[in-house]
Write a protein that binds this DNA or RNA. Structure first.
Lengths: 225, 225
DNA sequence: AAGTTTCTTTACAAAATCTTTATACAAGCC
DNA sequence: GGCTTGTATAAAGATTTTGTAAAGAAACTT
């Protein structure tokens, strides 16, 4: 089982059945909705990885449903529709649909298009290596490199460095960093921070006395570039 | 001009012409390639934001071209092809194409699909940057620039500058500024203000003696333009 | 249990920032 | 002009914030 959940929204029970069987036999988890109201409730309660949306629903215009979903739902939506007019297609795509298939569609093509949109929506966490000049951090393996050399960081050092990397360019306040790393009751222990910032600089900066990556913003916090 | 560059890969000159005109009139920047070799070279030398790829190229099978591109090119690729067989479509999508349009296609639909794939590939997190001529202030990252150069401001300087920027054009009284920055009990310490205004001018004005941004309204306060 | 690593705490040095003082300039007014 | 009022700037303290080393405590390893 893939554990990728797809929500099928269609009023015709035969089509839902067909899609369910097709998708399940391709290792997708399936949930169903037969009208607009149900679709929105289901999507909100248990957001799927992808929505297959029929535009011809009984209780509401499909374009409206799409708009409502897109107010908050950011994952892929593929439209399945009997209408093949350019107007409908353009409108749906501009309302945030990721693809538009005209019924009757070919099963293999649908599956390929599902794979395609899922691929592009999940490719971000596929390669979680952040690069900053001569420094790089691999979020998955927790490996930090400086000019290809692996740098060994302790847990606390790594957590701190991670925070800085993930917020490149932004100033992170002492307050925020202390809260994130040591917990809310440590927000006044700025000394901890100083010690670990010094440690990181010693390990990561070319010249710890003139840091180019870990910049201190006096009176505010630190910034990573 | 959008400044979004699209590479058109097609061997038929009429189609390239037509696409070029269509895309350019929709504010895209266009480059062209008429065969596989040229396409790969162009894409490598000057990577576009999107590639429109015809599968029927004279010098190489389109699927192979797609595979070669996908070895390193991560931005969207839309296939334009005369072949409408499911086999071709599935193969292309599984090789990393983001969409597949069968020729002849409808122009409006192509543009909508281009918008769609570009939308999902460029999920920008726009942060509010205020611009004032050669000066800019990024409230999120707390970065102030003067003609692209980062200017380092201390906490007090930054707070003061922020206040001025947020009230561009308005006169802020000494009273008000002192109260906002130092607190209600400092409303008579106008000297503080003068010192910090001078500091800001020294850092931000081209000629601190003849300020063009931070204007003094004698007897009242200061105004930022 | 000894040794190693990592974290916490202390102490002091260094740097940055803020406050205060001193002085100069400009404009308006008698 | 001489006086007052409001403003500008430099520079000397004063204060706050930050950096660094190093010792002791705690947590892990073997």
């Amino acid at each position: 089982m893939n554990n990728v959940e797809i929500l099928i929204v269609d009023d015709e029970v035969q089509i839902r059945k067909m899609l369910t069987i097709t998708l399940q036999s391709n290792d997708y988890k399936v949930s169903e909705a037969s009208n607009a109201k149900e679709a929105i409730i289901r999507a909100a309660n248990h957001p799927p990885e992808l929505i297959l949306l029929d535009l011809g629903l009984p209780d509401e215009n499909g374009h409206i449903v799409l708009q409502k979903l897109r107010e908050w739902y950011t994952k892929p939506i593929i439209i399945l529709s009997a209408h093949s007019s350019e107007e409908d297609i353009v409108k749906a795509l501009d309302n945030g649909a990721n693809d538009y298939l005209v019924k009757p569609f070919r099963t293999g093509e649908l599956l390929a298009r599902i794979r395609s949109v899922l691929r592009s929506s999940t490719q971000e966490d596929e390669n979680p290596i952040l690069n900053f000049g001569d420094l790089s951090i691999d979020l998955a393996t927790r490996i930090v490199r400086k000019t290809e050399e692996i740098v060994k960081l302790t847990t606390t050092e790594y957590t701190l460095f991670c925070l800085l990397c993930k917020n490149e360019g932004k100033v992170l306040t002492h307050h925020y960093l202390l809260k994130q790393i040591w917990g809310p009751s440590y927000i006044n222990e700025s000394q901890y921070l100083r010690v670990f910032i010094a440690q990181l600089r010693k390990k990561l900066e070319d010249d710890p006395n003139h840091p180019t990556h870990i910049i201190t913003e006096s009176g505010v916090g630190y910034r990573f570039i």
